[in-house]
Design a protein around this nucleic acid. Structure first.
Lengths: 390, 390
DNA sequence: TAAGTTTGTGCGACGTACAAACATACTGCC
DNA sequence: GGCAGTATGTTTGTACGTCGCACAAACTTA
């Protein structure tokens, strides 16, 4: 338990003003004051130092409204402000890049690594790759954000385990990078990075409650609840793939039976594609099924509908549990586009008890998968920087 | 979005100090300052006005530690401070009482009402019953808390629907009572009241993350996340009974199939009791099964184990989703005591992927059910009063 | 009796938001 | 062109709340 001190409120309010700018785009001081329900002088006091530090810039004066009045000068992030460094860590490959405060990606670098190799080799490859990205920045970035597959302790900044890359087990990665580059470093697991990417740069912008759902070879999720990223103890929570939706159902990789992951991932899709005799079942994806369904294949349509229903069950359970009302799909399911997300939305509605004023929406974020995760890693730095909670 | 002002932090810090007193029992100013990581003068500034208002009292000086020093004077709630009024609203019956700030119940009053009657009659019975409790208070209470079965909009203070008591549909109950008694009134649904009762006066005291699970004829839950009661939009969330754990399983009252409620409530227990030929299957409870199992009935033991596993599935799903790690049972399952809660705990552990430093605990709150809910209703007033969030 | 230790309380400094008043810049009307 | 009306952004003084420092009070040990 910690009390709040007057200087804390400055940090919080600065964060909230910046968040309002992210959510609403270029906004004048007067509009920010109205949005926040505070005095205009307060906003001036908050933004003026940021303009002097060149974090924000004053745009061209807008035209006055019909009643007249001094034209407003919208504020927004400086395109030449420091950037964010982002790292995506997947089994066997590293991606690094720079991200502007407005979400644009540049200086993309890639490197492979040996998942069974020596820790020292991995560390060297990682720092070298990241250094190549950082060298392309004109000034030091605000910080480094890392998105990693596997089990992450985001409090301690440690990779707990990555089943497909044993070399990473127990690696205190944030300490290593912050010592090497002298910058703040944050890490979180892959679904949570997708969530944060959605929140700052994607369809979750401005939302106070939503979830990101990733499907592919595995299934995971992350939630934004009441304006904050949800993190359980030591960064746990969101292991949705292994919630049971079919008691005593099919065996899962995890050793249990009937996990959601057994019916809503690519392995289910491949199995069913083979069973009904679709062409090339080993490489089936949601994208291909949608294509086939739209060119008239009733078998593709039938599988797609069952797949949508299988994905919907887990989302519906989450909806019953937390009532977030807004879900963003990533990974394979997102490649199915509006057709698949619409179908999932209908199935979710049929699974959920009706409640007045409740409107469940499901969209896909079909941007190149790596790009969303990299933006998300950058978003982690933003979230950390804004310190939005007390 | 709202910014924080200097006067807000006073309200927040007052709330946090009171919460620390709830959580830790009588505590000196110096200890409070250490707990909160603030200056002793700050604590003095916060508690002095509360002592003058007679909300808190200074206890007898404690003995000094071996090193000497001025003895500390522990502070705690004044036994003669205003109380909290509590109302429990179940189909066909009303209970009202007074609750002290330390959780003691008095002035208990009860009355039946016609679930299909006129709204005016219900309102009259409710206000008369509550007035009988309030008349026994020596001074006006802080406020009135209501726990109600059914679907509640806690933001608007309106009962949305209670399926077994149509007379209550759409009733703006908080407006009615606050107009009649001139006191602040808060309402929430039954599982959330149990949660709050656990938090302030039960096994959830001092916890920052836990869930309350109610089983009986229906199944519901509520969560305390990061030091706050979780409420979705318009007070939704926690409809755990209708999460699907057995896709295409047995039909549920709600129209769907395979809901958790179909395998973890009394109707499942009665059905299984009859199937295996237990005596008097129509009145079976967890309490009786535990008794029978402990006197050697292997059939009772077998059913009890399957029941525990059925309850555990849903808790495990919640654990995978939110990682709260601590669960308090209410209702029928709580009557099974430590034997049933221990069995559920073992099953949950087998359902959940192991994670380091994760310790899942399940306990029962077997206090007379009405009493926990009434304390919870009172706790709602406390929560509202403390305004613990920004 | 003296030294050491801990509790609880005044006082001034500091950080922050707010209200009132003012300069600035635009629109519309005479 | 001049003037009233309106909205933006800034200057100045005030209120609220925490913090650090110094100090009195009360206890233990030697």
């Amino acid at each position: 338990m910690m009390l709040v001190s007057p200087s804390d409120i400055g940090a919080i309010n600065r964060g909230r003003i910046l968040q309002a700018l992210y959510d609403n785009g270029p906004t004048s001081r007067a509009d920010l004051a109205r949005l926040a329900g505070v005095n205009r002088t307060t906003v001036t006091g908050i933004v003026q130092p940021m303009i002097e530090e060149k974090l924000l810039v004053e745009g061209k004066a807008t035209r006055s409204a019909v009643q007249g009045g001094k034209p407003a000068r919208p504020l927004f992030f400086n395109r030449d402000a420091p950037m964010l460094a982002a790292v995506l860590l997947l089994p066997g490959r590293i991606q690094t890049c720079l991200v502007t405060l407005t979400g644009e990606i540049s200086a993309l670098e890639k490197a492979p690594f040996d998942v069974n190799g020596e820790v020292e080799d991995f560390s060297r490859i990682l720092t070298e790759t990241l250094a190549r990205s950082l060298d392309q920045a004109t000034q030091p970035p605000f910080g480094i954000g890392i998105a990693a597959g596997g089990m992450i302790d985001s409090d301690k900044g440690v990779i707990v385990t990555v089943s497909l890359a044993p070399v990473l087990t127990g690696l205190p990665i944030t300490n290593i990078l912050s010592a090497h580059f002298g910058l703040p470093v944050v890490i979180d697991h892959h679904p949570r990075a997708l969530l944060v990417g959605d929140r700052w740069f994607g369809p979750g912008r401005g939302q106070q409650n939503f979830a990101a759902i990733y499907t592919g070879e595995v299934l995971g999720g992350a939630y934004y609840i009441n304006g904050q990223v949800y993190r359980g103890l030591a960064g746990s929570g969101g292991e949705l793939g292994h919630t049971v939706v079919q008691l005593d159902g099919r065996a899962c990789n995890c050793g249990k039976q009937g996990c959601w992951e057994t019916i809503a991932t690519l392995s289910w899709l491949r199995r069913e594609a083979e069973r009904v005799g679709l062409d090339d079942p080993g490489t089936v994806t949601s994208a291909r099924l949608v294509e086939d369904a739209e060119s008239g294949s009733s078998r593709a349509e039938e599988i797609l509908d069952r797949y949508a229903r299988n994905i919907a069950v887990g989302i519906a359970n989450l909806q019953q549990t937390l009532s977030l009302n807004f879900y963003i799909l990533h990974g394979d399911a997102a490649t199915g586009g509006a057709r698949l997300s619409g179908s999932i939305e209908r199935h979710v509605r049929s699974f959920v008890l009706a409640r007045p004023n409740q409107d469940i929406t499901i969209v896909s974020n079909g941007l190149g998968e790596g790009h969303t995760a990299l933006r998300g890693a950058a978003g982690l730095v933003v979230s950390e920087h804004l310190k939005l909670k007390i």
